[in-house]
Write a protein that binds this DNA or RNA. Structure first.
Lengths: 253, 253
DNA sequence: CCAAAAGTGTTGGTAATACACCCATGC
DNA sequence: GCATGGGTGTATTACCAACACTTTTGG
């Protein structure tokens, strides 16, 4: 939590540098040990959580802002980002940053403005991230998707919408390149799909289908060391992967 | 084109009533005589065209603003609207309303601000619309999708993105309820799909597929009067239609 | 040698494609 | 009566889902 002086400086700086009424919120998905993770920030000691977000510099492209914000929270560059919706209910930010309301006059308080927030979802490699809190949070950390805390504002809605969009996207786009390490086994990739969809899939059919997309390259070396039979290692064929991203899978009509 | 006085009043009013930096642009699709139509506005005598759009009142929900704007342009209420993307390139509105630049100081000119525009697409019944221009246009009229004039700003990009989204949407959602009259024949509906997709479809397979969705009700009365065999009339089964809208067609995974 | 993980093969059903034939009507 | 538009049927194919067997490896 900021002191009164810090808050006033922040608000003055925000008004000078940021475009009014616009914010960006990011739903960052990661995948680790068979669980879907979401990156969240926690207000110190209050058990209040919210999505990584920020504002748009006056001359900054939107996507660049999202990248900047995520770079600050995760340390990562070149994240897979997808804009999915704008949330603009006039009341959505009513109780935002209520705790600061006695420190500053409402007309000076940046946060009492109405904000439309542009929702992005991001897919990142869990192991590569270095979560770092912003100035309003005590910590930034991964939370399990099926064990989420209560979220501030409409962030629960934003998260749910992101998840729905991601699940839909699965049907006509490859995903995984951004969530998996460079090399992985087919069962590991399957676990990712099962986790996102929250549903068990058939091993053999999954493999056939995946290979049918021709976006995977099988390595010569199987993964060794584990108990049981050594699985093959795969990596994404980036060229075909990107082609599939733009063209989509099932032609439909 | 506005006079200097009108412009100054407009800008003062806009600053007072509208949320800064946000605009809304709508791609309104209609369907008539076998052709896909888009509603456009033309600046008087200049051959410059642009999409119906407007601004967001300070306390207005986004969707309500889109509805309000479309009501003004088309006379229609309860239009099918779908938010599809936010366009926010910092340079996107650089040359917007250039012709007014000598009338008003830049800092007073509402239009020299940076705007992020929220793109909506709408599907409407062509025959029900009463196109009406806004205060910056001489006329508002339907144009053929395959014979479009040059558009101002990034409106060509917005239109293309809307069309791509619509085509994608076809794969997992029913459409047509908003584009067709109450009753229609199967070949008429097929023409709609063919027009949107810009592709010929097989008569029999189209029918089988459509009926398979169980969103159509066949009327007892065939359409009479035309030459040749009288085709059946269909209407949408609203209950199933809406269920299909939310649940989607092909389950995918 | 057995349990557990992983690789591969087969089959049946469903849905999409590509066809051909019949019916009604106006000219 | 024939051209045209429209309704319906069928065979072939491709894909998806369900299922079974074999192989490898550590304990």
């Amino acid at each position: 939590m900021l002191t009164e002086k810090e808050l006033k400086e922040y608000c003055a700086g925000a008004r000078e540098n940021y475009l009014a009424h616009i914010s960006i919120d990011c739903v960052v998905f990661g995948f680790h040990e068979g669980l879907m993770k979401v990156l969240l920030l926690e207000v110190k000691d209050e058990g209040e959580w919210y999505l990584p977000g920020g504002f748009l510099l006056k001359k900054e492209p939107i996507e660049m802002a999202a990248n900047r914000i995520l770079k600050e929270r995760t340390g990562l560059d070149e994240i897979f980002l997808q804009q999915f919706h704008v949330f603009g209910d006039p009341d959505r930010s009513k109780q935002h940053f209520d705790m600061y309301k006695d420190m500053i006059a409402p007309e000076e308080n940046w946060f009492t403005n109405r904000f439309l927030t542009i929702g992005y979802y991001a897919l990142v490699d869990f192991c590569e991230t270095n979560p770092a809190p912003d100035q309003f949070a005590a910590k930034c950390s991964w939370r399990d998707l099926n064990d989420l805390p209560e979220l501030k504002l409409d962030h629960a809605l934003i998260l749910k919408t992101a998840l729905d969009t991601l699940r839909l996207q699965l049907n006509y786009q490859p995903i995984g390149y951004n969530l998996m390490p460079k090399e992985f086994t087919m069962p590991e990739l399957q676990k990712l799909y099962e986790t996102i969809l929250d549903k068990k899939l058939d091993r053999r059919n999954f493999q056939r289908r995946m290979l049918g997309f021709s976006i995977l390259t099988r390595s010569d070396q199987p993964r060794k060391g584990g108990a049981h039979k050594a699985p093959y290692l795969y990596s994404f064929d980036l060229e075909n992967y990107k082609a599939a991203l733009t063209e989509g899978f099932k032609g439909g009509w």
